[in-house]
Design a protein around this nucleic acid. Structure first.
Length: 486
RNA sequence: GGCGCCGUACCCAAGUGGCUAAGGGAGCAGUCUGCAAAACUGCGAUGCGGCGGUUCGAACCCGCCCGGCGCCUCCA
């Protein structure tokens, strides 16, 4: 059974959905005013894997991930560029889809946008006003924190600590410094919607409450997002949602750790962030390979730990992945009907699956899950030395595929990862600009095979060197023929 | 000031009270190979930031210290 670390209780808890067999999950998506960076990739990936694993475990998953498409930063960006807010949000929503597709992040089953839920938001704010948990100031509406006595239970803070530590200028109109905006009266030129309190737009937190309740109900199972959302965003969501309904909002709160650069948080203010598309552009590998490298890398660390991004770690992920694809290529080759290594593999596959499931059940321990796959790789290689039948080869490959899909890995068929990109856009002077076609390679391999048969090894080595200069590596099979990879 | 996290081999990274401290990457040696690649085998922390303490027993629990980081403000 899956155990998940719940931020609300501070411990790993057995996961049981409210409705048996069905999981309702809401994850805070992105504010669409800029391209996504690796931190966004990690968050998206973590919840993508959680969703995949829940489905693997037999649950039907209703997964909502929102787009925040009305916000100060969007307005600012639109003004800077002299375009409409719609233009900004459309641009970056499309970019988001492109980036996520390259990462193999599946789309959520529901992808609500704040601007499509203004009516729900207005209703929710109205409820809070009617219950005396919110108050109006000019055209704004604020949530009154001291009307929700357990405020701070998610982030383990108490209101007094927050007050003492507050470093921001406090809006004098608020009754309490921690009160937060549910509805903001709009200034001229800003997007606005009519409301009982005059034209305005929703505050940041209210949209998630309104959309989650609309699509998943007043109480649902899992609410996720980055660590930084614990306070104030999720804390405020809890206050306003529970305040309005009197019921629990989300039952399990799941938060992923940050991506860092040189031990420091990646952030725009430090200027040390990498966008997802930047990484794909700089990569010397095709998008499918780069996507899998990135995915593998992001899963080598447990989701709640900080993770340091670097070119080297990405390269290590690539090398680790090579071992799997080298193996798959060999599994693909024809073999006898019965072989000596067949028998032990059945048991190994069972053990692998048990280890994999145990790892994932333990709060999504993907590093251990990957270790299970590595164990299967090693055992398969050993069995291959003894000989494996075609049937068992097929079964083993299928096992890698079945477990790999939970992590979104090991689904590709080609060992050589298709065609190498000609030149990274970061382009060093020494980068090779020419690429050999598959036909050229086949010709040279044939010539080399002929040379080997006639024991003309100097020529054979010369042909190998030529291919090597184009980044092609050759592996000779025992029968004298060869396979190759880029 | 408040709340919280981290420090495990050359690098990355599991493990959080009890078999020989997972796994990957890199490295070295060997087997195989015309050479290579891949694979396989072996080597690699008597020790888990430091010092105390609890315990029959601690990387794991407690205390102090050192070092690094996060949140408290928009932020995945």
């Amino acid at each position: 059974m899956l155990r998940l670390y719940n931020t609300l209780t501070g411990s790993k808890e057995p996961f049981e959905p409210l409705v048996p067999g069905k999981v309702r999950m809401y994850v805070c998506g992105v504010t669409v005013y800029d391209y996504c960076h690796i931190g966004h990739a990690r968050s998206a990936l973590v919840f993508d894997v959680l969703r995949r694993y829940l489905e693997y475990s037999g649950f039907v998953v209703e997964f909502a991930k929102n787009f925040t498409d009305v916000d100060d930063k969007i307005i600012k960006r639109a003004n800077e560029q002299g375009v409409s807010c719609e233009h900004v949000t459309t641009t970056y929503i499309n970019a988001y889809y492109e980036d996520m597709e390259k990462l193999g992040v599946r789309r959520a089953t529901l992808e609500p946008r704040a601007t499509e839920h203004i009516a729900d938001i207005v209703t929710l704010v109205d409820t809070l006003l009617a219950k005396g948990m919110a108050y109006r100031v000019d055209g704004d509406v604020y949530f009154q924190v001291d009307r929700y006595p357990v405020y701070g239970r998610l982030s383990k803070r108490n209101v007094d600590d927050l007050q003492a530590g507050a470093r921001v200028d406090v809006d004098e109109r608020k009754r309490h410094p921690m009160d937060f905006a549910l509805w903001k009266g709009s200034k001229p030129g800003e997007p606005s919607w009519d409301s009982p309190w005059g034209p305005g737009r929703p505050g940041w937190h209210i949209e998630c409450s309104a959309m989650a309740m609309r699509h998943l109900g007043e109480t649902f199972d899992i609410h996720g997002g980055g660590m930084d959302l614990i306070f104030p965003h999720h804390e405020n969501e809890i206050a306003q949602s529970c305040g309005a309904t009197g019921k629990e909002f989300a039952r399990y709160w799941v938060h992923n750790g940050f991506v860092q650069i040189n031990q420091e948080k990646m952030s725009k203010s430090l200027g040390n962030f990498f966008t997802i598309r930047e990484i794909f552009q700089k990569s010397e590998w095709p998008d499918t390979v780069t996507g899998e490298m990135l995915r593998y890398f992001l899963l080598t660390t447990h989701y709640r730990s900080p993770l340091d991004f670097s070119d080297q770690s990405l390269k290590e992920a690539k090398n680790a992945l090579n071992g799997f694809y080298d193996l798959f290529e060999r599994l693909n080759e024809s073999a006898p009907v019965h072989s000596a290594g067949d028998q032990p593999m059945q048991e190994v596959m069972v053990r692998t699956r048990e280890a994999f499931v145990a790892a994932m059940d333990d709060d999504l321990n993907t590093p251990n899950a990957l270790a299970a796959l590595q164990m299967l790789r090693g055992e398969t290689n050993k069995a291959l030395e003894a000989g494996l039948s075609s049937e068992v080869r097929r079964m083993v490959r299928q096992e890698f595929r079945a477990l790999g899909i939970v992590l979104g890995l090991l689904q590709t068929d080609t060992w050589r990862f298709k065609t190498q990109r000609q030149q990274p856009s970061s382009g060093g002077a020494g980068a090779s600009t020419d690429t050999l076609s598959d036909e050229d390679i086949a010709d040279k391999l044939a010539a080399r095979l002929a040379a080997k048969r006639s024991k003309n090894y100097p020529l054979a080595d010369q042909l190998r060197a030529e291919l090597a200069s184009h980044g092609i590596t050759i592996e000779d099979r025992p029968d004298g023929t060869s396979r190759w990879k880029r």
